[in-house]
Nucleic acid binder design. Structure first.
Lengths: 203, 203
DNA sequence: GCATTATTTGACCGCCTGGTAAACTGGACG
DNA sequence: CGTCCAGTTTACCAGGCGGTCAAATAATGC
């Protein structure tokens, strides 16, 4: 038998196709609403073939969450302690907003999982994610103590960035409904958030 | 036959019990994940009895959404144009935050419906809700033109209030995971948001 | 009391679901 | 050619789903 690591070209391809199809399906239908048939159809293969690559529906879901957290959150790791604080944080907001804009599907899947109480993700939240946030908070707190940005709770500052950027992706229908059809939510959001956080951060 | 309006005491009671049970079930399981059996069990009656009061699962869901929007959003209608602008808006933030804190189930159901693209709510979003928001924006815009609060886009200001307050309810698991077990998200959120918006609104 | 109507339920149906078994395909290697 | 095996599919199953029906039970009006 092949060992764990060995994967043929076709295996990698089909696994990826299933994960892509599942991402789309789970994010729009929810975990219960998504059916294996729908995922298989979206992946362009038969249902048993899907189950040839993954042991169960939940295994697909878990694999999607894992892949997402590994790749999706990557641009958020950097927060340069040596940079100019305000510009550094505004760049962070911008990166996060673009992440939400360019990967709304991932954003919604993430939101859906958390809405349900994060049954398949809670350990990653209080593990890796929390460490990342705590690291950021260390940098931010230092900036605050040096008087380079306004004082506030670093954790809640991060939370507010996440809340505002995610909102434009997750609640896009509501945002569009409230703004009307002729406006461009994402462009406006970028301008508004820059000004918004400039005020929040300025001493 | 009884006309449309006539409802016996027991009808009102049981309809309400079903809506309460459905609210709980739908918000934690999602529309597809919630089963009529689960709703019936939560309401303390048999499944056919539930379907005696509502023609279908979706009818229950719609009725819940309607009741929710009518009662849940009520405290947000008021925005006194005669009051002191900053305090008026901070009071609005506080009301919205307490709404999220005291009715997290409603908040999550609302969020879940919007995540899915608001298939059963889109008309209410672009109708009544939008009118309410536009009204608020009128008051806010007047305040800005009088130079009583800082200039920004009123719609996005409202959106930012909604985003930040909803986030603490809808993403409560994540907030708790990031903050750690010993902290009190809601108390901290209230303090942080007051300071946050004071800065955003101050000239 | 009785008749009538409103409410409740157990039994049931057809459909769809996640998942399985076994057979089939096509290329690699001898 | 035949063997082998990763990859794929057809046929299928047991259980759960939303929903129906007819019969039983409680209220209600007289």
């Amino acid at each position: 038998m092949a060992n764990d690591e060995a994967q043929t070209r076709i295996q990698r391809l089909n696994r990826a196709r299933i994960l892509d199809a599942g991402l789309e399906t789970f994010s729009t239908e929810g975990f219960s609403g998504a059916t294996l048939d729908a995922i298989a159809r979206a992946a362009g293969m038969s249902k048993p073939n899907v189950l040839y690559y993954f042991p169960s529906k939940e295994a697909i879901y878990d694999a999607i969450l894992q892949r997402m957290l590994e790749t999706w959150l990557d641009p958020l790791r950097a927060l340069d302690a040596e940079g100019e604080p305000v510009e550094e944080l505004l760049a962070y907001v911008k990166r996060k907003l673009h992440l939400a804009r360019d990967y709304p599907v991932e954003s919604r899947l993430f939101a859906g999982e958390i809405l349900r109480g994060a049954p398949n993700m809670i350990d990653r939240l209080s593990g890796p994610l929390r460490e990342m946030v705590d690291m950021h908070c260390g940098v931010i707190r230092a900036w605050m103590e040096d008087g380079r940005i306004a004082q506030s709770d670093p954790h809640h500052l991060i939370i507010s960035i996440w809340a505002l950027t995610q909102h434009y992706a997750d609640f896009e229908v509501q945002v569009r409904a409230v703004l009307g059809k002729k406006r461009d939510p994402w462009a406006e959001a970028e301008a508004h958030l820059e000004m918004h956080f400039r005020r929040v951060l300025s001493e």
